[in-house]
Design a binder for these strands. Structure first.
Lengths: 141, 141
DNA sequence: GCCAGAGTACTCGGATAATCCATGTCCGAGTGCGTACGG
DNA sequence: CCGTACGCACTCGGACATGGATTATCCGAGTACTCTGGC
């Protein structure tokens, strides 16, 4: 599966969930819409649960639902909940410090990366799940 | 290794290469600075070569060098050369079209993703490899 | 008819097996330099 | 002494193992509905 479709699946999943106090939606049903296995959905939902975006209910008639209204959850929050290292990961093994580039590059790259992510944050914060759901259900592009 | 350190390694590699007409730098030497195996560097350099950013020379005294001056290559170009699906990948398997969400979500997500990437592009286009190299070699943050 | 209790169906959650991708290793293809030989 | 031809050393490029991570399958834990029996 694509390495970074987690975010797309997470957004898709969240759009299917009901607001706080609403009905519980099962991972099986979500998997049917996303066209994947329920375990994939549950894995993602556990991440969203750890971030406080959703809550799960075990047992019969159980499932998941949002912990906050869809209109208050931004796409950036979802992104933050799903990301592990962000779009940019620094070196896995530390570069050779004896090299003039390797010794200092990380510090400079960190600055560029954080500026880029701040820009992404600005854009993604402009759209909430509620707004996106309205767009999708209205059929607007 | 981190899933997305490819970009960092690519930038590090490009900073070590010489401008067009300059000396050839070998993947072994780059690997010594990045602290990884030469094959990893070669794999990344092949991607950069496909994007037209570098050129390779086989045989003795061979190696790689930039195809355009470092001052004309922006961080965004490197990012585009390295990305496979971008930071956001759409569904691997097409969502169930019979679901009101699944049938339309991709179109809307594409819009959000492209807007986000445009923002990243704006930021990353502001820095060229040459400028970054000056920052790094000067020790400035 | 009403209430209580056990049973059952359904769902999440974690543990374990299988598959896929990325990394690492090896060998062949290609190039330039160095050397040796002949003129 | 000079030119040419051969050999060698070095580098990229692709093909084949290996390791880790992601994915898929299975089973246990927990909850609510339901059915049955008694009052």
């Amino acid at each position: 599966m694509g390495s970074n479709s987690r975010y797309t699946v997470a957004v898709h999943t969240l759009l299917l969930l009901k607001n706080p106090g609403g009905e519980w939606v099962t991972s099986d049903w979500i998997a049917g819409s996303v066209n994947t296995k329920p375990v994939v959905i549950r894995r993602i939902l556990r991440g969203l649960q750890a971030a406080g975006l959703v809550e799960g209910q075990k047992g019969a008639r159980g499932g998941y639902r949002l912990r906050r209204p869809a209109g208050e959850i931004t796409m950036w929050e979802v992104y933050e909940a799903m990301r592990e290292d962000g779009p940019f990961g620094l070196h896995a093994s530390t570069p050779n410090p004896r090299c003039p580039i390797g010794g200092r590059i990380q510090k400079n790259l960190r600055g560029i990366y954080s500026a880029t992510e701040a820009s992404m944050q600005c854009v993604l914060n402009r759209t909430t799940l509620g707004a996106l759901r309205r767009q999708v259900t209205a059929g607007a592009g």
